[in-house]
């Protein structure tokens, strides 16, 4: 199968600022370093990473809005630097900013303007828009209103309507559900899942909301300190599997329950565990060869010890866990190192 997006050894360095022309330049900041990945046609590829990790920088380079320092990025074979006009006719961008339309124009007038930049005729726009606007709940009355009167959810829906009407083969989504209430966020996820899948649109989704990523992405890559790594579940049968519990109880009580469970277990199959204190409770991770067989006894021991178990997760790969583990392992940002 061919590739929609190819990125090879992409690096972006921002020069350090200087307060006056004669001042020595400040330290360069490296936003991306040697980033390499591919995205296949119709795939939803997600980028996660801490704030400031380089996700938006990468999306801006792929959208031709930012120049890379070195490396190559191609959209459908067209280079984002040398063939930017070709690239721009193949992509659209949905951002988390409400400042992406003219406030004084209505939704319909905004669509006419932005789709007109792609040479789209008004009649063509009307025909394409109708079924999509219905799906998004954007009625004619809503589209006739000034954009400045829209709620955040409606503003975001108008961005999706613009992107779907343009029907570009590649769609970049930058935090599509941020600052939306749970109902609107779910609506947006449903739209992405149905519309992008049915069009076989290639999507690069940058998200801090890991629910979006878990529900929508085919593959996930994490960017941290400018480096990108594609994440995935460990291969099945590779040894002990995790049981992840969210519990509410003081740590000594949780430990007592776990020790009680270990005493009654098979000495040939020891259970390994760790406890992480989190806001409002603790996360307990136990590794065992057979989670399904281990779980009832483990829950019973914890319950007997007085521990309230609120969540049980048997998935071999939990994105949030992986995210936190990698950020913890990397330690604080160099600027944040005390002393």
């Amino acid at each position: 199968m061919g590739l929609s997006i190819e990125v090879r050894d992409l690096t972006k360095r921002f020069p350090g600022s200087r307060p006056f022309p004669w001042s020595p330049p400040g330290r360069d900041s490296v936003a991306l370093s040697g980033v390499t990945f591919d995205v296949r046609p119709g795939e939803i590829f997600s980028l996660i990473g801490p704030n400031g990790a380089g996700k938006t920088t990468l999306l801006k380079i792929l959208s031709t809005l930012l120049l890379p320092t070195s490396g190559v990025a191609r959209i459908g074979g067209a280079d984002v630097v040398r063939e930017e006009s070709k690239v721009r006719s193949r992509i659209s961008l949905v951002t988390n900013s409400e400042r992406s339309f003219y406030y004084r124009l209505s939704g319909w007038e905004n669509l006419r303007f932005f789709c007109g930049l792609y040479n789209m005729h008004e009649q063509d726009l009307r025909e394409r828009m109708q079924p999509l606007a219905e799906t998004l709940g954007l009625t004619e009355a809503v589209l006739a209103r000034a954009y400045r009167t829209y709620s955040t959810g409606t503003q975001r829906k108008l961005q999706f309507l613009r992107a779907f009407v343009l029907d570009t083969p590649v769609l970049f989504l930058d935090e599509p559900t941020s600052s939306l209430d749970p109902v609107s966020a779910e609506e947006i996820r449903r739209v992405i899942a149905t519309e992008c899948r049915s069009r076989r649109q290639t999507v690069v989704l940058s998200a801090n909301n890991l629910v979006d990523v878990e529900r929508l992405a085919d593959r996930v890559a994490m960017i941290h300190r400018g480096r990108l790594e594609v994440l995935g579940a460990p291969p099945a049968g590779s040894g002990a599997q995790p049981i992840r519990l969210f519990v509410r109880a003081p740590t000594p009580t949780v430990l007592a329950g776990l020790e009680e469970f270990a005493r009654g277990g098979d000495p040939a199959e020891p259970v390994r565990w760790e406890i992480d204190e989190r806001a409002g409770g603790s996360v307990v991770r136990c590794w065992t060869r057979d989670p399904r067989a281990t779980l009832p006894g483990l829950l019973e021991s914890l319950w007997q010890a007085g521990v309230r178990v609120e969540q049980v997760d048997l998935r071999p790969f939990v994105l949030e866990e992986e995210f936190l583990r990698r950020v913890d392992e990397a330690g604080p940002e160099p600027e944040e190192v005390p002393g």
């Binding site: 061919g2 590739l3 929609s4 296949r40 191609r74 006719s89 193949r90 040479n119 083969p169």
Partner: peptide, 8 residues
């Protein structure tokens, strides 16, 4: 490389 159509 997957040839992509133009939306323009």
């Amino acid at each position: 490389v997957h040839p992509l159509p133009s939306a323009a």
